[in-house]
Design a protein around this nucleic acid. Structure first.
Lengths: 181, 181
DNA sequence: AATAAAGCAGACAGGTCTGTCCGGTAAAAT
DNA sequence: ATTTTACCGGACAGACCTGTCTGCTTTATT
């Protein structure tokens, strides 16, 4: 089989997201991926490298997916958040992989944190672009407001009742998008 | 010494918050607290109990502190968020203890998660009270919006530049408080 | 003065985790 | 045809972590 690396990453993604990075051990991953330990360490230098690869892939997936959503400007912003809320209502939702993982790696200098920072910078820039396109009077500040909102949904979606999250999020989104100059 | 329990909790609070719950071991806590292992297990049934005590105390501290802030209604809401933002700008800020710990305990049935849920329910109710007092047209939804905002500040304060967090938070707060009927 | 509670130091068992290494097989590339 | 690459199963070392237990000392209470 030539796809051992793929199986490892898929298994790790599932387990890391559902149960946390520190909780899930290498032995568990290689067992469920059906892979030998030597094979794992052939593809990944260490567990940390796997964690980075996991987050890097999530980053790539989002960067490929979100911009391709339909609409432009304001309509696209609404679509993006509609999708985020929808995801947070899914059965297996356990919060944002970046935030959860960052919470487990307290050291800001850890490589994992760099991936998280990259993702957040990209998301903020993406929001600002769409806000500018939508003719928002203050796209800079509004982009950070949307980042805060996104974080809130990720956290609250994992801890609170779905109706609360949906109502609060859509209300705040509208306020931010309709903000006067 | 009669305050071994106090020293344990203080040390645990410091270490758990700064480095994470799973990362910090019992041996480290008892060493830095200057306490024998038997003494630790005399006061706490297990590590999980210490984690619960840690969060329960944070809950009590916030429940005692926030309502005593000056002002009423809208002024108090602004004061509360001014303090939250201020805290997030402090040097040792590493996010919200409840959120960070919840991220490390994926099982929603774990006792730790109950403390987190209690805190969140209290905070939301507290917001709703103040919003009602301030004559807000939709205190229910607005309370959830403020919860989302609070979560956003906690997360973003630990990961992003302070100016971004401050500007975004205060802008969103104003929008939520000034929302038309 | 006597008893009970709280504390100390440290050994120990049993488990888990990461990362290395061994020997051997199948497939791909040259 | 040969060499290299990818893969397998599993043993192993070394570290760490939780929780228990033993034995002794100090402090508080009665």
């Amino acid at each position: 089989m030539r796809d051992a690396r793929r199986r490892i990453l898929d298994t790790a993604t599932l387990l890391f997201y559902a149960e946390g990075v520190r909780t899930v051990g290498i032995d568990r991953i290689i067992a469920e991926a059906g892979v030998a330990k030597a094979t794992f360490y052939h593809h990944f230098k260490a567990k940390d490298a796997l964690v980075c690869a996991y987050l890097a892939e999530q980053y790539e997936l989002q960067r490929a997916f979100l911009p391709r959503l339909p609409g432009t400007g304001r309509a696209k912003l609404e679509e993006v958040f509609r999708r985020i809320v929808e995801t947070s209502e899914g059965p297996g939702f356990r919060g944002c992989p970046f935030l959860n993982t960052a919470a487990e790696f307290a050291d800001p200098a850890h490589p994992v944190r760099a991936v998280v920072a990259d993702y957040r910078a990209w998301f903020t820039g993406f929001m600002r672009e769409l806000l500018t396109e939508a003719g928002h009077p203050a796209p800079g500040t509004a982009a950070h407001q949307l980042l805060l909102l996104r974080d809130g949904v990720a956290v609250s979606g994992a801890l609170d009742a779905p109706e609360q999250v949906r109502a609060g999020t859509l209300a705040s989104l509208r306020l931010i998008l309709d903000a006067p100059a």
